[in-house]
Write a protein that binds this DNA or RNA. Structure first.
Length: 186
DNA sequence: TTCGTGATACCC
DNA sequence: GGTATCACGAAC
């Protein structure tokens, strides 16, 4: 699912304005069997939505200052989610720039914390249903894009799992590439 | 490379 | 209660 989301359009409607962007970078997280996952140690109030039905927003606060947006994937009871790490803005750039306090379009939403800040996403959207919501949803994107895979960013456990996906050559993906040569993955 | 920042989880 | 640990970003 993480790979399929690359190239799709993420849409956020807020205050009558539409913010959108093409998803260019994601990471997959699983449950019990994934040491890097919030759900690795089981259910808790924080990760509750990871155990809920698929297609919902799992939004959490981390590092004392950043929100991160995930989309749940597995059926209720089984924890798994895809972290949205970067988008290439396609609409509402002015409001995104205002939210971020920077003008450079390439850096508006390059990184999970930047993405949520640009799109004004916080814990109030935790649990939002991507299928029925008009505040936050995803539209199918362009097929055939060249997608690369690598190990995940900032993850010490499970480095052999290449569960980070990004659009080849995109200048909108986040910095901080993990060590090791990325491999193609189509 | 470092540092700010605060919730969370797990250990008393 | 305390505290280690973060699915980070930006400024150096």
């Amino acid at each position: 699912m993480a790979k399929e989301l690359i190239g799709c359009l993420l849409v956020r409607n807020i205050d009558g304005e539409t913010l959108s962007g093409m998803i260019v970078e994601t990471e997959a997280y699983r449950g019990r069997e994934d040491p890097a996952s919030h759900a690795y140690r089981g259910r808790s109030p924080r990760n509750e939505t990871m155990f809920g039905p698929p297609g919902h927003a799992y939004v959490y606060f981390t590092m004392g200052m950043h929100y991160c947006l995930n989309i749940t994937t597995e059926p209720a009871g089984k924890a798994a989610a895809v972290l949205l790490r970067a988008i290439e803005p396609t609409a509402g750039m002015e409001l995104m720039a205002k939210n971020r306090g920077v003008a450079d379009v390439q850096r508006l939403a390059s990184g999970p914390g930047n993405l949520t800040k640009a799109m004004a996403i916080d814990r109030s959207l935790n649990g939002e249903d991507f299928v029925t919501s008009d505040r936050l949803f995803v539209e199918s994107g362009r097929p055939g894009a060249s997608i690369m895979a690598s190990s995940r960013v900032g993850v010490s456990a499970g480095k052999s799992n290449h569960w980070r996906f990004f659009l080849e050559g995109s200048r909108f993906v986040s910095r901080g590439r993990p060590a090791g040569a990325p491999r193609t993955h189509n």
